[in-house]
């Protein structure tokens, strides 16, 4: 009896909180179907005269390049970033969490310190570096760093997970003649699935939304990403395209949503497959 009441209470709480969370989504969705000149007039999110025009105009893209292209570009960068982060961060994390080497503590501290400097002051030197490499207006500056483990956030995250794996496993494996490389592949990685999934989700969302580095390094419209293209719809000195902005911003959330729904399942089922459903 009391258990069902607790259940009921929890549901009400969740639903109320849920509305608070989802309100912007509804508002954006509503605005995306609204007449462009009504967006700032309608106070509520249900459009008075729904239309698909915003989607048509938005999908046509910028400077003759369709929005589908921007989606593909974003997907490419995101996919490469995920692969890069998964490989480089898990390798570094494994080294820091499980292996002994000289300067380990020092290098770990260095890794954390690199996270502490506001990136705005390294933008110019980094731009010069990439310019000297001839990488401006290519995707290299956006992808290569991911393969070189510059995202210390994920390294630190994976370290925390790896430290939770019982050391006895290592010892058992070592007794059986398993070297660090095999240990990494067959013991550590399978046990770190929640961290890898978290990394995948975050890398997807953060790279998808990160317009600043994309803004600096990409100039040609045919290389534009979704985040960059969305920034172009609004200009306070001119004629902003609010309708297409909302339409394409809504569409741009769809992949994020799908990825999240798809991977969160693994987040939950990954490591304790079979035993959690009880």
């Amino acid at each position: 009896m009391s258990l069902t009441r607790v259940h009921w209470f929890r549901h009400v709480f969740n639903i109320l909180l849920g509305i608070l969370m989802i309100y912007p989504l509804l508002w954006m969705l509503g605005s995306s179907f609204n007449q462009e000149n009504q967006i700032f007039r309608d106070n509520f999110f249900i459009p008075s005269m729904p239309t698909l025009a915003n989607y048509v105009e938005g999908w046509a893209g910028l400077s003759g390049i369709g929005f589908d292209r921007f989606f593909l570009n974003s997907f490419f960068i995101v996919a490469m970033s995920i692969i890069g982060n998964l490989i480089s961060c898990s390798m570094a994390a494994y080294a820091f969490a499980r292996l002994n080497f000289r300067l380990r503590r020092f290098l770990f501290a260095v890794m954390l310190v690199t996270l502490m400097l506001p990136f705005h002051v390294t933008v110019i030197p980094q731009y010069i570096l990439f310019h000297k490499l001839g990488w401006i207006n290519t995707y290299w500056p956006l992808i290569v760093p991911k393969f070189l483990g510059v995202e210390g956030f994920f390294i630190f995250l994976m370290i925390q997970f790896m430290r939770g794996i019982p050391k006895e496993l290592d010892e058992a494996a070592r007794v059986d003649g398993c070297g660090p490389v095999r240990m990494y592949f067959f013991v550590i990685l399978p046990m770190t699935v929640p961290a890898l999934v978290t990394t995948t989700i975050f890398t997807f969302i953060w790279t998808w939304n990160d317009y600043f580095s994309q803004l600096l390094y990409i100039s040609s419209t045919n290389l534009y990403t979704v985040a960059l293209a969305l920034r172009q719809f609004v200009d306070v000195t001119g004629q902003s395209s609010w309708g297409p902005l909302f339409a394409m911003a809504t569409l741009s959330l769809v992949p994020l949503f799908i990825i999240f729904i798809f991977f969160q399942k693994y987040l939950i089922e990954g490591i304790t497959a079979g035993s959690v459903k009880g």
Binding site: S88, A95, F101, T122, L129, F147, L148, G149, V150, V181
Partner: peptide, 28 residues
């Protein structure tokens, strides 16, 4: 061997540190 293995796994990160991160930081 573990020490060598440590640096082996750290290689991508070390390259990134020395090649991409450290220089701009020192420059700043």
């Amino acid at each position: 061997q573990s020490s060598m293995a440590g640096y082996l796994f750290l290689t991508p990160w070390l390259v990134g540190l020395l090649g991409l991160t450290a220089l701009p930081m020192i420059a700043s």
